[in-house]
Design a protein around this nucleic acid. Structure first.
Lengths: 237, 237
DNA sequence: TAATAGCGCTTGTAATTACATGTATTTATT
DNA sequence: AATAAATACATGTAATTACAAGCGCTATTA
C-alpha cells in the first residue's frame, strides 16, 4: 500500500527496535558497536547514529560514552504520552477497539481546547468515538475529530480493531510528526461512569491532544479519557 | 562553577532558543536558512542541523522541506512532561518555591512506584518536600528522594526559589538525561486539600517520576501532585 | 491570458574523514 | 603484588562533499 521508500536510518531504526522488542537483544546487553552496525547494515556511522539517536529518544536504549549502547527494553505501560498512537505503544495483542460512533461528517465547531482556523471550520470534520479495552477492561474512551479536507472515502473504512494512525498512513500518506497534549484530572461524568463501569467519585485523566502531520497545516484532534486506575499511563522523556 | 565547555551545536541551540523566547524571531517567521546559520555561527550544516533538530524536538520550530524552519513559539503551559524540570519549563518569573521539608538524610525505603536497588537502599536518601506556586497559586506539591551517594554537603544548600536541576548540574556535574513517569488521577487527600486549598472532591494529577542522570546508574525520584484545575499540564511529542 | 517549464532556493539523506574523550583491559613498572 | 602507564576500542563532535527532493517565483510558450 505504502510505496514510499524509507531512508536507511529509518530501516536500521525499525530493525533494531524490532530486535529489541523480540528479545533478540536482552535488557542490559550491549548492542553491537556503531562500527559493527555499519558493517552489518552496509551504511556509515552518521546513518547508524541517527538510528541510535531515535532509539535513545524513544527509550529503547541508553548510550554511554566509551562503553556502548545498552538495551533498556521496550517502553512499558500505556505509552500514550509518546508518539505512535495507542496501538503501537501497547503492542496490539492486548488491545481491542470498539467503535461507539462510526466516522461521520459533522460541522466542525470546536477541537476541544485547541484553536481551529476558519479554513478548517469551513470544511467540517470527520467525527468518531471509540472505546479501547485492555484485556477486556475499558481503559480509554476517546473522541476524534479530523478536518474533512482531502480524505476521500474516509468514512467507508472499517475502524474496528484497526489503528487510525495506520489507516492515515497507508491510505492517505499522512504521517503523524508530533503534537501537543494537555492533561487534566476530572471526576467521571455519567457517560464515563457507564463506559468504564466506575463510580462517580472515580478520578479520570483527560487528555486533549493535537496531532500534527506530514501534510502542512493539517492537524487532527482527540480527547481521551483514561481510567488509569488499573493501567498506568507511562511516558519517557 | 561549571567549567565544562559546551559543544557548538548546544551553543547554537541555546542561542536560537533564547532568540525565539525573546521574540527576536516572531511566531510564523522563517528562521534564516541552514546555510545562512552556518555563516552566522561559523559552523557547518551538520552542526546547525543538530541544533535545529533539538529545537524541533522541543517544539520551538517546525521544518518544511523546500521551505525552511518555521518558528512555532515557546512551548506554553506547565511543561512538566518534558525534560528540564519545572523551572525551565515555565520560565522562572511566575514560579516560586516554598520548602516544606528541608533536605534531610533518611533511610531509603521506597521510591514511590519505582524499584530501587539494594545498593541505593544501603546509602539512604536525601528527602525533601516542596510546594510550587504559580502567581501565588499553589500548583505543585512534590516529594523528592535522591540516593545519598557521593553528594557532599547536599543538605546545606539553600533550595528556596532555586532549581534542583541547576544545583545538581552546577555543584555536582549531574545532568538529567531522561527518565520516565507514571500518571494517575486521584482525589485530594487531606494534606493536599490543605496545601492546594481545595475541597475533597477535587481530582488531582499524580506523577511518579524517575530521573536518569549523566552519572551511570544514578537516578533520583519524585512524586508530584498537581492541581491542574487552573494551569494545564502540557507536553509535546 | 493562462498554463507550464525551468531555475534557484530550501531542507533531507548519506558517505567520508578526522580527532576528542570516556571506558576497560592489558602491560609495564615499582 | 599493587600501582600506574599504555593500549585498544567505544561513543562524541565536527568539517566536508555530494546529490535528492520539495517549494515558489519567473519567464517562456501555447
Amino acid at each position: 500500500m505504502n510505496t514510499d521508500k524509507k531512508p536507511q536510518h529509518t530501516i536500521v531504526y525499525e530493525t533494531l527496535r524490532k530486535h529489541i522488542s523480540e528479545g533478540i537483544y536482552a535488557v542490559g546487553d550491549l548492542l553491537p558497536s556503531e562500527n559493527d552496525l555499519c558493517a552489518t547494515y552496509g551504511v556509515t556511522r552518521p546513518t547508524i547514529r541517527k538510528a541510535l539517536d531515535k532509539l535513545v529518544n524513544d527509550g529503547f536504549i541508553i548510550k554511554r560514552k566509551g562503553k556502548g549502547s545498552i538495551v533498556k527494553g521496550t517502553p512499558k505501560g500505556v505509552g500514550i504520552l509518546s508518539l505512535g498512537g495507542t496501538t503501537s505503544a501497547l503492542g496490539s495483542e492486548n488491545l481491542t477497539t470498539k467503535i461507539l460512533i462510526k466516522p461521520e461528517i459533522r460541522p466542525f465547531e470546536s477541537a476541544f481546547s485547541f484553536d481551529i482556523s476558519d479554513h478548517e471550520k469551513e470544511f467540517g470534520c470527520i467525527y468518531m468515538e471509540r472505546l479501547r479495552l485492555i484485556n477486556n477492561d475499558p481503559v480509554f474512551y476517546d473522541i476524534t475529530v479530523i478536518p474533512n479536507i482531502n480524505l476521500p472515502r474516509f468514512t467507508s473504512h472499517n475502524f474496528e480493531n484497526k489503528s487510525l494512525f495506520n489507516i492515515l498512513r497507508e491510505s492517505y500518506q499522512l504521517e503523524v510528526t508530533g503534537g501537543e497534549q494537555k492533561i487534566q484530572a476530572i471526576l467521571a461524568t455519567e457517560k464515563i461512569q457507564d463506559y468504564f463501569n466506575v463510580s462517580k467519585d472515580q478520578p479520570i485523566i483527560q487528555l486533549d491532544r493535537k496531532m500534527d502531520t506530514s501534510r502542512p497545516n493539517f492537524s487532527f484532534y482527540s480527547q481521551v479519557f483514561c481510567n488509569a486506575d488499573k493501567y498506568a499511563l507511562i511516558g519517557t522523556f
